[in-house]
Each structure stands twice: as C-alpha cells, then as structure tokens.
Nucleic acid binder design. Structure first.
Lengths: 129, 129, 129, 129
DNA sequence: GTGGTCTAGACCACG
DNA sequence: GTGGTCTAGACCACT
C-alpha cells in the first residue's frame, strides 16, 4: 500500500520530497506501473498540506514521464522500476565523474578516492538495509 | 595580484562565488597568508555589485577562519594553502562516502563506481589543468 | 461488428475517443448508414466507464448529424462514409493552411514544407495501412 | 522595448500566452540574449494578473532553457533567436509529417496537400507581415 | 469525484 | 528590490 510521507522539518522542499518519495516507492516495488496515485486532494488532506503543493509534485512527475495525469480520472504510474533505476544509475555515474574531477584537481589520488568509497561499499554489503 | 571575479550569469549565489574565489586563490598561491584582501567598498565598486554582498562573503570567510577582519585596517588572510587543502580533502572524502552510500543503496557495485572515477583520473593525469 | 473501444491510459478525453472511434468505423465501413449503435448503458457496461461519458459522446455525434437518437429505440447512424470523408477532407485542408501559415511566418519555405510531407506520402503509398 | 501582453478573452492559458509571447519577442529581436525580463511582480502588476501566473510562465521558460532565473537578481534571456528558430522549425517539420500522415490515410493525395499549402505560402510571400 | 488554472496574499533568502 | 515556495480557496471541464 502506497504510503507517501513528508517531513515538515526537513530543508528539502515539500513538493520535492513527494516527487522523491514516489520515485523511491516505484523503485521499491511498493508502487508499480499502472497503479493509481492517491488523488491530489486526498493526499493533501492526508498529509495536511495544500493541494497546490501536491499538484506541483504531480506536475513535475508527469514532466519526467513517471506518471500520467488523466483529468477527471486520476494519475497513474507509467514508469517502470527498471527505467527509473536506469535513469538514476546514469545520474549517479555523472555525479561520480564530477566528484572525481574535483578530487583530482585538488590533489587527491585515485587510490585514496577508492579507499573512501570502498569502506562504504563494504559496510553496505554486510548490511541488510 | 589578487583579482577576485564574479559571473553575474551563473546561478551560484554571488557571495558564494566570492568565498570560493578567495579560497581558490589561496590554494593557487595567488593570495598568501598575511596578504590584505581588497576593502569591502572597493571590491563592491570594482565588481559593480552591492557592498552587502561582499560583506556577507567576508563574514563567511571569517567564520571559516580563513580571513580575519581588523576593524579600521582591512581584512587579512590567516589560512594557509596547506590548511585549506587539508580541509578540502576532508570535505571531499566525506562527499565520496555520501555518494558511495547512495550508489550502493541503488544497486551500483564498487567496480562500476571506480571505473567511472578512473576514467576521469586518467584523463586528468595527462592534462595540465 | 462494431467494436467501439477506449484506451483509459490515453490523454485524449474519453468521450472524444468514442466520437472519433465511431467516425473512424463509419469511414472504414465497419458501421454503415442505418446501423444501430449500442445503447448508452450497454456500451458503458462493456467499456467499464460512466454512462454520462457515453451520453456526452452520443450527444456530440448527434450535434454533428452523424447519428440520430430515436427516443426509446436507440441511436442510428445517418451519415455516410462519403459525407464524413468529405467533411474530414475539408477540415484537413483547413489544418494544412493553418500549418502552412505558421511555417511561412517562421521562415520555412514551401519546398521544405513539401519535402517533409512528401516523405510521408511516399511511405504511405507503398504501405497498406 | 519589451512589451509582453496577454489577452484575457483568449482560450489559451495565461501562462502559456506569456511563454509564447516571450519566445516570439526573442525571435523578433525585440528581446535578445542577456536582456533582463521584467520582474515577476512588476509584470504581474502591469498585466493585472497574479504574480503566481507570471512565476509559472517564467518557470516554464527556464525549464526550456530560454531564460535563467537568478534569485534576488532577476531573470535573463539565455536562448538566442537562432536556437529558438531552429527548435521551432524542428517542431513544425514534425507537425507537417503528422498532418501528412493523417491526410494520406484519409485519401487526400500529395498534390492536393501541396496545393492547399501553396496558396498560403504565395499569399505570405507577397505580404510584409 | 478527478486534474488543472488562477487569484490573493504570506513568507523566505538573496542583492 | 529580486525569484521562489507555500497556503487558502475559487473556478473550470471531464468522469
């Protein structure tokens, strides 16, 4: 069951939290292709925030071709977990390259870069979460 | 000769551009310990931007203990290229770990992570800049 | 056999999909003059959508003098494939003129306009569908 | 001098009218790269519509990489008349192909298609506007 | 009921 | 002053 949440205390913009939350749940499998999202108003009610903010989030999701809004009918998911994961991996690769560039031009060498990363990957490997 | 610049068309906040610029020039060696920074007013004049913006940048630099404001006399640099470089390497290490965490929890494996980085390090190695 | 369909995932309004579908089938020959359309309720049932939506489509078809509702007896087709085709050709001509106007005022020349169209006509010519 | 206008009686959405208007003026040469757009509030005032509507238009223009919003500083144009014209020609080409497809599958032949267009191009050719 | 546009006005950080 | 987010609530067409 889809349970979208926001944290009012976070710095992240509310509508962005919703966008990320939906993407996360699609990648989780909690939400899958052709599922309906909660309606703009019901979700606004449930989260205690303004419908316009939900609308903005859904508009952004539609722009990214993750959902499709069907006026008068609701909003359904059109992206798949895989397509989303692919997009995200691409973005991460780009981030890695940018960071590597900055590190290199600051004198950090490749081994040090990898060592810092390895510590995290090893910890994650043993973890469950 | 210290030549601080800002790019009005960049999205980065003006005061941040100045902060980064000063740090960069210290790491370059263009500015060194005990050098005076231009006065708030003269720099504002020179760059054609509001003195408040310069002030904000200088305040931030002082907070980071990179410069010291000597009331009535101007602002001097107290950080060294080495200390700055050390700080930056620490920050980069943290960024690498954060990115590694995100990559790991998204299914990217360590080898792929390193491969993306290696391409950049190799290119940088041959480059000059 | 008339088989009107709608695609719930399309953006096009449901009642418009039905209107277009009926017109299409008349031009195809699948539906011909004096054929009965399915009743509002049975079609609504069959497609799993609201009867109001079917009603709206039928009302629009009647407004365009394509069908006629015979209270208590159902709705029959009064337009012919030819009359529909004629109407559509007229509408298409108008669309071509509008597009040509926009293209011209944007600097595209006539040859380029025709070249783009020709590619499609040639491909269609060989095709069956 | 940039004079953005909207027509409250038109069907077209207000924010879209503004988006199109700005694009138009860039292609005209009335607005050029690096020009500042009027501020959100001043334009809202001038046009007698809500600042949120202007904001929405500017956000869309930024998404299309036509302007860049610099918080606290204003919004400047980054697209050139040429790039915009190029994009528009591409879109028009696509529209021509779609229309040609529809025309072909409806029995209209290529000559008739071109004849309809030619009439318009000839008229436009003689015109000034 | 649904999505979507719009108005009105508050608030924030930045210049 | 600037852009930008958010709330509150009206209105529309469509289901």
């Amino acid at each position: 069951m889809a349970q979208i949440t926001v944290d009012l205390r976070k710095r992240q913009l509310l509508f962005e939290q919703i966008v990320d939350n939906v993407k996360e749940q699609i990648m989780n499998g909690t939400l899958t292709t052709d599922d309906y999202l909660p309606s703009v108003r019901s979700l606004a009610n449930e989260l205690g925030i303004n419908p316009n903010t939900i609308q903005k989030a859904y508009t952004e999701l539609e722009r990214q071709e993750i959902i499709r809004s069907l006026p008068g009918r609701g909003s359904i998911i059109v992206a798949t977990a895989e397509s989303l994961r692919g997009t995200k991996l691409g973005a991460l690769g780009e981030k890695v390259r940018e960071l590597a560039y900055e590190a290199a031009s600051c004198g950090m060498d490749f081994d040090e870069f990898c060592r810092a990363a390895k510590a995290v990957f090893d910890k994650e490997g043993g973890d469950d979460k």
